[in-house]
Write a protein that binds this DNA or RNA. Sequence first.
DNA 1: CTGCAAAAATGAACCCATTCAACTTTTTTC
DNA 2: GAAAAAAGTTGAATGGGTTCATTTTTGCAG
Lengths: 212, 212
Amino acid sequence: MAGLRERQKADRETRILRAAATRFRADGYRAVRIEDLAEAAEVSVGTVYNYYRTKGDILIATVAMEVEEVLAQGAAILDAPPPGVADAILRLIGGYYDHSLEYLSKEMWRTAMALAIEAPDTPNGRRYAALDAALAAQVTDLLLRLQERGEVRAEVDARAVGQVLFNNLNMMFLEFVKDDGMTLQDLHAAVARQTRPVARLIATRTGQGDAP
Amino acid sequence: MAGLRERQKADRETRILRAAATRFRADGYRAVRIEDLAEAAEVSVGTVYNYYRTKGDILIATVAMEVEEVLAQGAAILDAPPPGVADAILRLIGGYYDHSLEYLSKEMWRTAMALAIEAPDTPNGRRYAALDAALAAQVTDLLLRLQERGEVRAEVDARAVGQVLFNNLNMMFLEFVKDDGMTLQDLHAAVARQTRPVARLIATRTGQGDAP
DNA sequence: CTGCAAAAATGAACCCATTCAACTTTTTTC
DNA sequence: GAAAAAAGTTGAATGGGTTCATTTTTGCAG
């Protein structure tokens, strides 16, 4: 095992992916031609297509790496949510947001999201959708956790509210990546403004947390 | 005024738009080539680009017509919202959804939404964003209206909750157009399931409306 | 009418993602 | 270790959106 062919294949794939992550961020997804990636990765154009079905596939692969990291980070918060309904939710969401520009530019996010919408039935789109679903599940799980703990009222439909909050945070992230002038701070502030009132509505008297 | 040139211009533009609306729906956005539209509209390829900046522009123009109609329909509901917080909200949202496939296919919606995300700084994207904002404002206005009427609790931040509900309905619509197997009925049901709990939380005791 | 300037229309040329038939390299078989 | 098979690489060809230099049409002044 670990024959020459295997090693060469893995090597080529990572060369392509590294080249892509670098060039996409530096020059923008649009501006980078497959030929550029091929050159940087020292393979031919045809070979790039041997590893990735489309240009968009390469982008999704880089985005997926990012989201996997975010999910792991979120799991840690789920293990020990901070006290206060609003604070716990905003901590989780804030973690997503703060990580998002670590390796990716706004343009890359925009393009990836657009791809996932346009072609939901490709391996592409399905992978992105699955990651999205995992994030949504994390938000819902947090609410269920808080409900167990007695911070969220028992009669609240945690699954429904979780979905609504996730959809909201996702949409706000979309606004964020669409607007080059919007900062992470702006995003945090906007989502806090929207999430706090909902958190207050679902919180038990005792678990209401801090200031307005 | 209304010289020959003006009339011809307007005529060509509508010929192109009509051809596009028809062909996009019949054959799918992807499958239709600019050359096809040019032929159907009896102009040259170059002329199409004289009226619309990109292929996506033509699609956005057809989508915009649809959304204008939906906004007008929504305004009528705002004038006299039905009683019950959940029912009023769901009536408005349901109107949006039911109208959405009147002239457009799911594929057209997907592509238009993807375009609006990918290129938010084009006239394209801005126009779509403006329509989106108008829809969001309608939802918020409805909540404010219900608050005046005493159906929504005075201490609720109607603007924040309105934004959250709009983001949710928008995201659910996105799910709907991404999944060819999902019916309008499914969409209505899913959104009702998510909206009702929130409506219950913000409603005054008296205005709680109907069943579970 | 005639000639001229402005406005539009035109379609061939260009760019790039994607495909595919021919060629190389690695692995397997005897 | 040679030859066949399998797996992978290659880059020229294809297709369709977009551009732009040229041609045609329209509006207008004399």
